[in-house]
Design a protein around this nucleic acid. Structure first.
Lengths: 91, 91
DNA sequence: AAAGTAATTAGACATTTGTCTAAACACCGA
DNA sequence: TCGGTGTTTAGACAAATGTCTAATTACTTT
């Protein structure tokens, strides 16, 4: 949960997730969409992976990053407790 | 959106929101639930207020903090775009 | 084997963040 | 009006964060 919110707390990383929404991309393809250096991109991708928001797979010299949507349910669930009736037992 | 994720990126602040789920509380009541100093608590509450996650109202010498659930929809909406079909137009 | 390409690791550095103590501000009751 | 209570502001400081360049690793192609 901590790694999740940490990963989401950066506009670059959120933009990366939105990019990956349409299809998996290699690290290089992702880097092309941003102005920052490749090592910085790599670092951001690492944080996304630590939060399990993306998975990475090495294919030859390329590393493809794929959005992992299952983990979104975790945040969604946390958020929804606030929408629920006040009498609902807190998680 | 930035202030929102920033505010949520801290376990203490998330715990505060969960506390306020049941009912509004004064700054002092909130502080009693945590081990950290009152100024730190005040600072966290300020960040929550900046993100519009809570509202504050002064009543005499007390300041009551209330959960503002409407803003949760913003995050919810952002998250839900990832659950939607891949062909959905990105926001 | 060597040169080129893709990506990450290492390390430096400025900025931001979370925490604290001390002080100030605001209100209350005697 | 004065001491007490509730809360915030100011300022300091260590730790975490985001960025960079340089170097390294891993793979491909010739």
């Amino acid at each position: 949960m901590n790694a999740l919110f940490k990963a989401l707390n950066d506009p670059t990383r959120r933009a990366m997730l939105e990019l990956l929404r349409t299809r998996p991309l290699t690290a290089g393809e992702i880097a092309d969409r941003f102005t920052m250096s490749k090592p910085s991109i790599s670092h951001h991708l690492d944080l996304l992976r630590q939060a399990d928001l993306v998975t990475s797979e090495k294919q030859g010299q390329f590393v493809t990053y794929t959005l992992n949507m299952t983990v979104f349910d975790e945040i969604l669930g946390w958020l929804l407790q606030f929408k629920a009736s006040p009498d609902n037992p807190p998680s």
